[in-house]
Amino acid sequence: MTDSATMVGGRPSGGGRRLSWSWLGALPFFVYVGLFLLLPTLVVVFGAFVDPSGRPTTANLSALGQDFVVTSFKNSIVLSAESGLIGALLGAVVAYAIATGRPEGGLRRTFVAASGMLAQSGGVTLAFAFIATIGGEGFITVLLRGQGIDVSPTLLFGLSGLTIVYAYFQIPLMVLVFLPALDGIRPQWREATETLGGTSWHYWRHVAVPILTPPFLGALLLLFANAFSAYATAAALISQGSIIAPLQIRVALTSETIAGQENVGKAIALGMIVVVGVVMALYTLLERRSARWLKK
């Protein structure tokens, strides 16, 4: 493979000059991502440690210790964990219902395609959809009011409301992530369990669940990171206030009036990078572990 690749030019490569020409081909890409992906990331990381005039300081980081910042991070973690857990459990059940159908069936194709779309559905439209459903004058709210049940008008603007809304894109994401793991389970493993005299319970307890646990936990971490990073839906739902960390960044960005606090937003952003980074590192570890059994 490598051989044919280096031979494509008609001559074997390897000379310093040719090598530098090859690198030139990838240059536009690296310049671009350098400017618009790596530079902004570095701005956040270094900006968190300097004051507005560029002198190094730890004041921004100590601003992270302020009560309202700590609370917003705590809320973000609770929201991500809850919506992640709900999404992972329900998503796994849906994925199982899909995986047990015909592999080439239209039903499966439809559900997978819909999941792909819904997993990306977070944003203003999703916020509107839930306002139209369980908001003050929403469809379900009105329907339940007719039955004498009141839906709290502020439900959508609190953590529990956000959890419900987030489930709308977490469940489909779980379906997409977990389906390959379920497909990796071989019918032969169940047959082997039965041949050895095992029941359904034995099969699940000793075969399926242990094999599916690492991919499940991995997916759970991915969902956590997904909810933790989400901004648009919450921003559209909650126009004032900042109960979660991403909304705290909005406050820092839109009201840069307090002298000396300009870089606090960067410190909060850095805090988010750290949380997501740790979660994604754990995810990579788990991925490697689950790949052992579920390799295709």
Binding site: L37, L39, P40, T41, L42, V43, V44, G47, F228, S229, A230, Y231, P246, I249, R250, L253, G265, K266, A269, M272, I273, V276
Partner: peptide
């Protein structure tokens, strides 16, 4: 890298 973080940078 969350979009909200990227925006800050």
């Amino acid at each position: 890298i969350p979009a909200i973080v990227l925006v800050v940078g």
